[in-house]
Structure formats: structure tokens, C-alpha cells
Design a protein around this nucleic acid. Structure first.
Lengths: 238, 238
DNA sequence: ATCCAGGCCATTGTATACGCTTTCGTTGCC
DNA sequence: GGCAACGAAAGCGTATACAATGGCCTGGAT
């Protein structure tokens, strides 16, 4: 029974050890960012291990990585669950995005090429299409990817990675504090931003990005009412 | 031999599992930041496991965490080694610090209290003393701690954590590209900065921080000469 | 009937064991 | 004499097994 019925697993284990882990990481990460796994959802190691056909060891590694990126919360003896950002954290994240993303715009405007502009337009188009098709999950992920790609065009890998994490956390924040049916980024905002960058006008791009982020933050309904028994309310109201 | 001569280990394992790991993490992290472990140094799992009296499992977890903070590099089948930052990474890190730390100064100047100022002066004093006593290791760590503390006073935990990581990586950069005997931060610089903050002059503090960081970066001798065989040169020249 | 206590179960934390890859040393051949 | 190929050893990657802790359910007492 053990060796006979799963020969492919052994094969997969040998061939692509590290890649498999990375793929699983991306699966879980995407599920969180796309709100398929909602904040507060528990992530049991055994269940994940069985689903992805690996041992708990690998799952633990991935869960730890997600915890360091603050997408999941690891409580000492209770296991892992999707992080539920607090109101303070939400403010910090958006303040950080305000500083970094806007600060990056001038450099991006300076370095951007025609090929980059094409890529950005393509992403914005796909995002619009997903939004129109009602695929919220895809739209959310594409929006985050757009912001990260933009940051990456600055040439600063460190800051780009940081922006990527902030965008992931923003997705979590939207899941908790966002009004349903109202996505974070307006669809035409990104197109306008691309136009400013095409003109090489970094200052206007930065100003527009600032307004863009402020608009997203303003659309949130941040109420940290419950203090001691928040889980029940959240679960039963949702 | 196994059970009789180490009863404390059993005890320690039961009482403070998570804390022990955190302590080990800090030990290794400090050793890297203080240049006791130099860039390129290999970190064998077995050796670390034996030194700290835990199993390889725990060491792997810690190594992974350090890898995500980019203090150590994890090459697939070769194990862990202290990260040797490239010239590009060094530039990115200092550009990022320039943007974030300077951008934070106005808010810090706005929120700083008398107690905060006392704490900062104390840190600056200890740093000066360590520098005068020739304790480079301690001085380097205190300098990084000063910058992180400063960022934390902004009230933005996310950005403060980011600055902390940038400072850790800066320490690594100094180890590779810094001229021996010339520490990154001039001792009186931090005192001057504190004065501007005390005056509540965020703009001047930001400008001074900018010069401060530029001075550190300028003091580096960034030469990425070796491409394929850098290890030998580095080791024999150091 | 409700509350407290004790035991059971579920789940994580840790260690150990095994397999595989990589690397270094040696030997043989050119 | 140098280069290449093979073999052995060392170290990492993964899985499995065991131990400990916290939550939950049940039973009894008030």
C-alpha cells in the first residue's frame, strides 16, 4: 500500500524539491491575497500537508515564511491562521505605502521604457477585464501585482520587495475593513498613472499615487469595535 | 553519558521552547551584525546545533528566518553562509534608508518626548564610549540600534521594522566594503541629530540624516572587481 | 440546572533517522 | 606530468515518530 500506490510522489520529491515548496508557498499566498482564505481562517498543518502531498516539515517551513511576511499569524500552541490586521497596522501599512510608493515615482518616471509601459498597460487592461467579469479574486491579485511591478521599475530591488509585501498586507486589510463590492483600486486610476509616467512627469505621478492611495484608505471602514470577543461577532456577522 | 550528564538540557527544553529559539536567533544575528561572523562564513547546521544544544530542526528554522532577513544566504545543497552583499544591493539599501529614514524624521520630531530624548542620548553616549574603548563590535551594534530606535519613535511599526532590517544589512555592507578602522557613523553625528529633534525641527533633522547617510555611503570603497573567484581574494586580503 | 473538575483528544513542537546530492581525494590513463 | 573519472565521505533535505500542551467534553457535586 505505501510504496505501490504513489510512485509519482517519490519522483516529484526527487526532481524538484525546492521548486515544489515554492509552488506551494505561492498557492497559499495567492489564496490569501485573493481572499479565498479569509482573515482568521485556521491553517492546520496536517490538512495542508495532505492537500499538497508533502510532509508537515515542508508545510511548517512555508508557514513560517508566511508568518515573517505577516500574512499568517503563528500563535505558540494554537497553530497558524490568516492574519487579521488591526486598525493600527492598517494605518501603518498605508502610511508606509504613501511614503515609499510616492517616493519611488520620480525614479520610475526617469527609468521607464516603452516596453515597460506596454507591460503596465497590459496589466491594467487585464485588471479591468477581471473587474468587469466580476472576478474579484483575480482583480485583487492583479492590482497588487501592478503596484509591485511599478515599484520594481525603480531599479531598487529592496524597496520593490518591501512594496510587494505592503501590497499583500493591503489585500488582507481590504478583506477585513473593505466594503464588499468596492474594490480598492479604481480601474481607470492605473491608466491615468501610466500616462503621467509616459510623460516622464514624476512629480505628477507621485501626487496622483498619493491621491490614489488616500482614496483606497478612505474607502475603508476602519472600526476596531470589538476588543475581547471579536471572533464571534466577525464570524456570525460575516 | 547521554542522559546523566545533561539534565539541564531537558529542563530547558520543557520550560522555554520558543524563547530559547529566539535567544539563539539573537545570538547568531548579533554575531553577524557585530562582524564576529564575517560575510562568506559558512554556518553548518550540525555545528550550530551542537553549540547551542538543540537539534538541527530548530537551527534550520532560525537559519531560514535569517535568510528571509537577508543576513544569511541559503544555497540549495550547500547550506548557509553569511550573506556577502553585492555592490548593487549596497546601493539599494542605502537608497532605501535615505528615503525611509529621512522621510520619517518630521514625524519623529513631532512625536518625540523628553524621555525619548534621554534614551537616545544614552544610546549615543554608550556608542561613543564603545568607540573610544576600541570595541568596534559593540559600537556597530549600538549604531544600528540607534537608527532603528529612532525609526520606532515615528510610531509606524512596519517602517521601523524595515529600517531595522536595513540597518542590519548595512552592518554587513560595512563589513565587506568598509575601510577598516573607519566606522560607519561618526560619533558626534548622532548627538547633532538629537539636537535638531529636540528643537522639533524635522526638516533640518531630515536634511542632516540625509548627509549622515551619504557620508557613510561615501566612506565605503565599493569595488566589485572579482566576479568568478571572489572568495579567495577576500579571504586572503582580509 | 449549572458550574467546576478531571481526563481525553487534537494539534503543535522537537528530535532522530534515512536518502540524496555534492564535493573532495585518489588513482589510472593519456 | 596533467587531466579525467570514479569512489568515499560529509552535509543537506525530507519524512516519520514521539512528547508535551492546550482545548473540549463529560461526569459529578452543589
Amino acid at each position: 500500500m505505501p510504496a505501490a500506490e504513489r510512485p509519482k510522489r517519490r519522483l516529484g520529491k526527487n526532481g524538484d524539491g525546492a521548486e515544489r515548496h515554492d509552488a506551494i508557498y505561492r498557492h497559499i499566498s495567492d489564496a490569501i491575497i485573493e481572499h479565498r482564505l479569509k482573515p482568521g481562517a485556521r491553517l492546520r498543518e496536517d490538512a495542508l500537508a495532505e492537500v499538497f502531498g508533502v510532509s508537515r516539515t515542508g508545510i511548517r517551513k512555508i508557514l513560517q515564511r508566511l508568518a515573517l511576511e505577516q500574512l499568517v499569524t503563528l500563535t505558540p500552541r494554537r497553530g497558524a491562521s490568516v492574519t487579521r490586521p488591526t486598525a493600527d497596522e492598517a494605518k501603518d501599512v498605508f502610511d508606509a505605502r504613501q511614503m515609499v510608493e510616492c517616493g519611488l515615482m520620480p525614479e520610475v518616471a526617469r527609468r521607464i521604457t516603452a516596453a515597460d509601459l506596454r507591460g503596465l498597460r497590459d496589466m491594467a487592461r487585464r485588471e479591468r477585464e477581471a473587474l468587469r467579469a466580476g472576478e474579484q479574486s483575480a482583480a485583487i491579485k492583479l492590482s497588487a501585482a501592478f503596484h509591485e511591478r511599478l515599484a520594481r521599475l525603480s531599479g531598487n530591488a529592496t524597496l520593490a520587495e518591501f512594496v510587494g509585501r505592503l501590497c499583500s498586507r493591503s489585500s488582507l486589510i481590504l478583506a477585513v475593513y473593505g466594503n464588499t463590492g468596492h474594490l480598492g483600486c479604481e480601474s481607470h486610476d492605473h491608466d491615468d498613472l501610466i500616462r503621467f509616467l509616459e510623460e516622464g512627469n514624476g512629480e505628477r505621478a507621485a501626487a496622483f499615487m498619493s491621491r490614489h492611495l488616500k482614496a483606497i484608505e478612505a474607502s475603508l471602514s476602519i472600526t476596531e469595535a470589538e476588543e475581547e470577543a471579536p471572533d464571534l461577532h466577525q464570524i456570525f456577522s460575516g
